[in-house]
Simulated assay, not measured.
Amino acid sequence: MSTRRGGHLSGRHPLIVLLTAVTLLLGVGAVPAHAAPDEGGSKKLRDALESTAKGHIEAKNKLDASKKRQKKLSGELKTMEERLGGLTQQVSEVAAHSYRMGRLTAPAMLLGADTPDAFLDRVASLDVMAQRDGKRIRDMVDARDEANEAKRKLDAEVREQQKQVAVMANKKKQAERALAAVSTGSSGGFSGGSSSSARPAPRNSNGSWPGESCSVNDPTPANGCITPRTLNMLQQTQAAGYKRYASCFRSGGSGEHPKGRACDFSAATNGFEDRTATGGDKSYGDNLAAWQVRNADRLGILYVIWYRQIWHPGTGWRAYSGSGSPAADHTNHVHTSMY
């Protein structure tokens, strides 16, 4: 019995060795490193970061649009004022001439005609003079009204800009309050990385971001859906040279991952390793984070978290601490959330 059992085990041993070798060769043992990181953080914090970043971006878009309208209106007002100045001068000259010479009355002009033909000529001349002078006055009044309307619109744009600046300031305060529990204040952020500029994601005609759903296939191994804007961010990040392992969609939980509006970019070449990045891996994450922040407005990025720091459009870089693990502190991956 023991011989059969030993023979049976002996017969299986080469197969076990072979399967083990194939497993190592194919990298199956590396699969756990590719699992999505447990980033920690409360739902309240993630919701606050999302809402304040969106509020800041929307206010900035409105501010930028208002500045464009103001620039256009300023040009129109300058043209109108120049035209009004010319028309006012013409009307003033007519008035001054009438004051000096006395207004030529119709009876006096007509009585001076000594023939029927001359009478008709003077009737026609009176009509031309009346139309000319009347048109000058009407044009002057219209130009003055248009200039006043342009000034009114300019004043409205100034008030709109003041309103949006106040909104942005309020969103900044809200974001700072939300981050207070996990932040110790401002930080240096990151620099360097690719100098390339991202291809901008499509915007509405007024400069705002269109609403998008989780509607396109996630090309990362996460195997889910993401928004078209998230896909563009992912593709542009990879096109800039950041091609290490990434994962976007994640089912369940709060935040942007389940909505297809976030991606995690591994610092290590082999996936999400449970260790703090150092050396070349740290430099890779630094450069990636810096590049994304420089292109945040083009891509529609809400915020970026990397290496115990978070970039928010309203606050800039701030210190950020999780629960102490590489995933929660984001020291093994860059997290990018999208509008």
Results as ranks from 00 to 15, higher is better:
residue 1 M to S: 10
residue 10 S to C: 08
residue 16 I to K: 12
residue 21 A to S: 14
residue 31 V to H: 10
residue 40 G to T: 11
residue 55 G to N: 06
residue 64 D to T: 12
residue 70 Q to C: 01
residue 71 K to D: 08
residue 72 K to D: 14
residue 76 E to I: 15
residue 81 E to S: 08
residue 89 Q to H: 11
residue 92 S to V: 11
residue 100 R to H: 09
residue 107 P to L: 02
residue 108 A to E: 12
residue 109 M to H: 07
residue 109 M to W: 04
residue 110 L to R: 10
residue 118 A to S: 13
residue 120 L to N: 15
residue 126 L to V: 09
residue 131 Q to S: 09
residue 136 R to I: 08
residue 138 R to G: 03
residue 140 M to Q: 13
residue 142 D to M: 05
residue 145 D to Q: 11
residue 147 A to F: 04
residue 156 A to E: 10
residue 159 R to L: 09
residue 159 R to G: 08
residue 162 Q to K: 13
residue 164 Q to W: 08
residue 165 V to E: 09
residue 171 K to R: 14
residue 173 K to I: 12
residue 174 Q to I: 04
residue 174 Q to H: 02
residue 175 A to T: 07
residue 175 A to C: 06
residue 180 A to T: 02
residue 181 A to F: 07
residue 184 T to V: 13
residue 187 S to N: 03
residue 189 G to Y: 06
residue 192 G to I: 13
residue 198 A to R: 00
residue 201 A to N: 00
residue 205 S to N: 07
residue 205 S to T: 14
residue 211 G to V: 06
residue 215 S to A: 11
residue 220 T to H: 12
residue 227 T to F: 09
residue 228 P to Y: 11
residue 236 Q to L: 02
residue 236 Q to W: 00
residue 239 A to L: 10
residue 248 C to G: 05
residue 250 R to P: 09
residue 253 G to W: 02
residue 254 S to H: 15
residue 258 P to R: 10
residue 261 R to P: 15
residue 264 D to N: 11
residue 265 F to L: 10
residue 268 A to K: 10
residue 272 F to C: 13
residue 275 R to H: 12
residue 281 D to P: 14
residue 284 Y to V: 04
residue 284 Y to E: 04
residue 286 D to T: 05
residue 295 N to S: 04
residue 300 G to N: 06
residue 304 V to E: 00
residue 304 V to Q: 04
residue 305 I to Q: 03
residue 306 W to P: 01
residue 306 W to G: 00
residue 307 Y to W: 12
residue 308 R to G: 01
residue 322 G to Y: 00
residue 325 S to W: 05
residue 329 D to W: 06
residue 329 D to A: 10
residue 331 T to Y: 08
residue 333 H to N: 05
